[in-house]
Simulated assay, not measured.
Amino acid sequence: MFAVYAKEPNAESPLDSLVAGERPEPEVPEGWVRVQVKAASLNMHDLWTLRGVGIKPEQFPMILGCDGAGTLDDGTEVVIHSVVNAPGWQGDDTLDPKRTLLTEKHQGTFAEQVVVPARNVVPKPAGLTFPEAATMGTAWLTAYRMLFVKSGLRPGQTMLVQGASGGVSTALIALGRAAGFRVWVTGRSEEKRALAETVGAHRTFESGARLPERVDAVFETVGKATWAHSLKSLKPGGIVVVSGSTSGPDPSADLQRVFFLQLRVAGSTMGTRDELADMLSYLDLKGIKPQIGTELPLAEAAEGFKAMLDGATAGKIVFTR
């Protein structure tokens, strides 16, 4: 079957390890299901996989892609949940110490077919196209958990999203606007800030700009480049919810500010299968659509990878078949 995969880890030049070609069709173990992939979306995690982060060298070659949507053998339209738990795990999917994501141990979604545990598919709402549904499993689920499970925000309060155009950021903006929060966003360029306003931001600001007032919560995926600004932007008792550190994992903690203003820092990783199902229902009820910046045939996936590596994103990058 045709697939896009990483042939080997390459920390310095990740795109040199990207291959589009033939891979064996997957076998379907007992308790698993086969999905005929119709669309799949690109995540920063796929670039990390190409670099060899979070994956052992012996796991290569590895088909890339955490997210996807498609059909089961009986024609049922489904969205894929990419957190694969250890057999018998009970409780929050994201707290399983032996959990993995697709592309870490199991082959991913950038292929004609993918196999996943039966519990890792949820029904696709009729109101979402396959490309739209393919953005849900990582970026949108991450945003949903950050906002509705971790932040504790109430409608009418103010939230700041650091970074205007990535998949998690655009999901946070759309979800926050629909839920009745005042949504402020920072962005590096006028173009990215304009995109944020199109998605639903009430106000946008240059990266690092002094805000008109402090906010109730900050949503962080950037890390080192924005961390100091995030803490300075919070009201006393406010919370920063962190789900990534794309500019580096070593921000200054600024512990004096944290303890003196009683700030809270909450980590958030992905989400559970039930949260994915709830989010899909919420989007269906509200008529919310994800921001897709680029849609490409799977055979042209390298173009999408280059755009992400260069930071030239305007919403999610989706590959279709």
Rank of each mutant, 00 (worst) to 15 (best):
T135W: 03
K38G: 15
T100K: 12
L195D: 08
R145I: 03
R264Y: 03
L72G: 12
R264P: 01
K38E: 15
A253D: 00
V37H: 02
L153S: 09
G54Y: 11
E12T: 14
Y5L: 10
G200W: 03
L298A: 13
R51T: 07
V218L: 04
G238F: 11
W89H: 14
A111S: 12
V116C: 04
N85S: 13
K124A: 08
P249G: 06
Q262R: 14
A314P: 00
G271M: 06
R23H: 01
G293W: 11
T313L: 12
P212V: 14
T313Q: 10
F259A: 05
D73G: 11
G208N: 09
L276R: 04
S189W: 07
L195E: 04
V199Y: 07
L153I: 14
I239H: 02
T135Y: 01
E220P: 13
P26L: 11
A277K: 13
A307M: 13
A126P: 04
D67Q: 07
E220I: 05
K7W: 00
S252M: 05
H229C: 07
P29F: 12
V35P: 02
D254K: 09
L280N: 08
A302Y: 00
H229A: 13
N120E: 04
S82Y: 13
F60S: 03
R273Q: 11
